[in-house]
């Protein structure tokens, strides 16, 4: 992982505006997130979060691709979902005392805006405007994932 200090918040906001997750956030929220987080680069195969570890950060993927993997005994790691640019990962960090639900691995070199969970939760607690703007967006991302999981559960290609 390679982190870069980003003084140029305007550039980060511009990146956010190009993401599915960030585009519909209010300008204030976008700026707040830009200040809270930092842009990080990941190399291919780099592990960003381990399944079962404390969910310490949430990220918004700007470019590249991440795989959400879970370990199935006797089958090894199975990729259950890929995170595409614009989507979030590590959203459990919005809640206190939670664990990462899957291992997050970069499948190619990727770039993301990463926000510390502790800072994010503190900001959400004290800044109601931020909470009102961010929570529905996170909820939407989670609902989208839930819907997809439900389809996967149906096993669309069953014989």
């Amino acid at each position: 992982m390679h982190a870069r200090a980003m003084d140029d918040y305007a550039a980060v906001i511009a990146m956010l505006n190009h993401t599915w997750f960030g585009a519909e956030l209010s300008p204030e929220t976008q700026e707040r997130l830009a200040r809270l987080g930092e842009i990080q680069d990941f190399e291919a195969d780099e592990v960003i979060l381990h399944e079962g570890d404390a969910a310490k950060e949430m990220g918004i993927l700007i470019s590249g691709r991440l795989a959400l993997r879970t370990l199935v005994p006797e089958r090894g790691p199975v990729t259950i979902l890929s995170v595409e640019p614009g989507d979030i990962f590590g959203w459990s960090a919005v809640l206190a005392d939670t664990q990462a639900q899957s291992t997050v691995v970069a499948t190619e070199s990727s770039q993301a805006l990463v926000i510390e969970g502790i800072q994010l939760r503190a900001a959400l607690k004290e800044d109601h405007a931020l909470a009102a703007s961010l929570y529905p967006r996170v909820l939407k991302a989670v609902a989208r994932r839930l819907r997809a999981t439900r389809l996967q559960l149906l096993d669309l290609f069953a014989r």
Binding site: R65, P77, V78, L81, A148, Q152, L156
Partner: peptide, 14 residues
């Protein structure tokens, strides 16, 4: 819908 670690492409429903 699902893949092993060697798959670098997209994973998720169509």
């Amino acid at each position: 819908d699902r893949a092993g670690p060697e798959w670098k492409g997209r994973v998720g429903v169509v």
